[in-house]
Amino acid sequence: MKTTNALPKDAIASIDDPIFTTTYFRDSDDVIVLDGDPARAYPLRILSYHGVVNDTVDGRTLTFGVSGKLADDALVMDDRETDSEWRQPSGDCLAGRTLTTLPSTTTTCGEFRAAHPEGVVLEPLPGNSEGGARPSGQAYDMEPYSRYREDDEFGLYGMRGDGERRTWDRTDLDAKTLVLGITHDGDAVGYPLPQVEAAGGVVTDTVGGRDVVVVVGDGELHAFEDPGTSWTLTDGELTGDGAVWDPRTGESDDGRQLHRVPARTLFAFAWQDDHGAGAFYGPNPSSNV
């Protein structure tokens, strides 16, 4: 693993005392949602700039900051209790431990509000808010990230023009194909969005002995525990076992609920860096020609 120093330690400020609100300035912004009482939404606009939000959901034992280092182009976090370093995409500690992935989903802030009327949204840091030095839409400008996503280059070089230019030899996937990665009991499978769409928008599989169903909902990938049903996705509706299910939430029209599987959404190159060329769902997953 190649580790480089990209920035001074804590040059990117983590959010250590998050404040939540029932209002947010842009309903079209994407957010990561954690279920709870109340449900919480973390805008990607804020997460992209701070890298880390330290929040208490089900008990917290470590507090993380941004180390300023990259490991194979992945952000390295460090915790303030043990001074250990962790790769952000996988949650793996460079000393051998692994963080637990919580079930979450990505949607827009507006859709979050509609689904969770009592839900709360992470506030920008003071000074980056509407009442601070600059409006949030300016202080948390997403243009650099949108530009990076659209460009063919990837890694540190693709973001800043620093370091070595990376190459990508696969022909079955682009480096920046969105992948939903699931790990369980020593097994790891990444589900690329185009492959799931090509399979009709829904696939069933087994990861480390866990049966899963991966489905496309509003252009995003979602994964749930599969109860053994035969699934079909038609016009955005997931049907199975005599019911219609929302592919984004796993809720059925007769009151049942699928259990969401802990998973990570990331680029194909980042998933391959962590798990190798063969850790993808689809035909010829290790094809490099």
Rank of each mutant, 00 (worst) to 15 (best):
L75K: 03
D55I: 09
T82N: 15
A71Q: 13
A41Q: 10
K69N: 13
H50G: 09
G51Q: 10
V66P: 01
A95N: 08
Q88S: 11
S84C: 10
R45W: 10
L94W: 08
V52W: 02
S84I: 09
V57Q: 12
D83S: 13
P38T: 06
P89D: 02
A41E: 03
L47H: 04
A41N: 05
C93V: 00
T56R: 12
Y49T: 09
L62V: 06
I46K: 09
W86R: 08
A74S: 15
P38S: 04
L70G: 15
G96K: 10
R97S: 12
R80T: 15
A74M: 11
S48V: 06
D73T: 02
T100N: 06
R87H: 08
G68Y: 04
Q88L: 12
R40D: 00
D79R: 12
M77S: 14
A74E: 10
D58K: 15
V53P: 06
T82P: 06
D83K: 14
I46T: 12
Y42P: 00
L99S: 08
R60N: 09
T100G: 02
L99E: 02
V76P: 01
T100K: 11
L75Y: 05
S67C: 11
A74K: 01
K69S: 07
G59R: 13
P38F: 08
W86H: 03
R45L: 01
P43S: 03
P38V: 00
S67R: 04
A71L: 12
L75H: 03
T63S: 12
P38Y: 07
R60M: 11
A39N: 02
D73A: 05
V76R: 02
D58V: 01
A41Y: 01
G59P: 07
R97W: 15
C93Q: 07
F64S: 05
T82A: 13
L94C: 02
G51H: 08
P89S: 03
N54G: 03
P43D: 07
Y49H: 15
Y42G: 02
V76D: 05
V66R: 00
D58R: 15
R60T: 13
D83Q: 14
G59W: 08
R45P: 02
T61I: 00
H50I: 07
G96Y: 09
D37V: 09
L99M: 06
Y42I: 02
D72V: 00
Q88A: 11
G96H: 06
D73Y: 03
R80Q: 14
A74V: 04
E81W: 09
T63M: 04
